[in-house]
Amino acid sequence: MNTRRRLFPAITLGLVALAAAAIGANAQNTGATKATAKIGQAAPAWTMVDTNGKSHSLADFKGKVVVMEWYNPGCPYVRNIYENRRVHAMISEMKKMGDNYVYLLVNSTANISRDDMVKQSTEYLRKAELDMPILVDYDGKVGRSFDARTTPHMFVIDETGVLRYHGAFSDDNTGKKADATLYVLNALRQMKAGESVSPDYVRPWGCSVKYASAN
């Protein structure tokens, strides 16, 4: 009994000390360590269905350079790069570099119904006179595995499946600067020349990705 009496205050003091330490040492996560897709490492594997119902996997594109754009035509920054034909210009440049390049759109927008998301995505691209797969990530699993933050948020994956660049589309979120630096195109050219990619990350700008609630 006496032992228990002596132990109780000791345990209490220990718990208080632990609680104080937990309160006192306040760790502020700035999000810098959240990403699961890391430059220089294999990009997360994925399989997604496009808006036409066709299934695609990252593994299908082995041997090709894959550019993924997180896309939401409801976002004005996405519209900026389409209305000002910046995406058109980049795809044109990619074609000049060879037929080894793939440009994919990924839509993780879940603040509207899936049907509406598919409809808006395809209608917008048709009006933009572009034709590329729009991959549907309605549950947001792929977006979260890449830590896609914004629309647009760009990812460049090399022929071996390694992530080589991610971040901003360009240094101009208005899409109006004729001499804007297209970071993705820079990365593709450097990769083709066998150089290291620099910069391999630029903070992406744009709207937040409207993810489905995480379960």
Partner: peptide, 26 residues
């Protein structure tokens, strides 16, 4: 910028530790 740790110290002082990394290529 990595994790940031804040520790209230004694006598009304705090300590803030900001971890960082400089990546020349960026």
């Amino acid at each position: 910028i990595g994790d940031v740790h804040t520790t209230p110290g004694s006598e009304g002082r705090f300590t803030l530790r900001i971890q960082y990394e400089v990546r020349a290529q960026n």
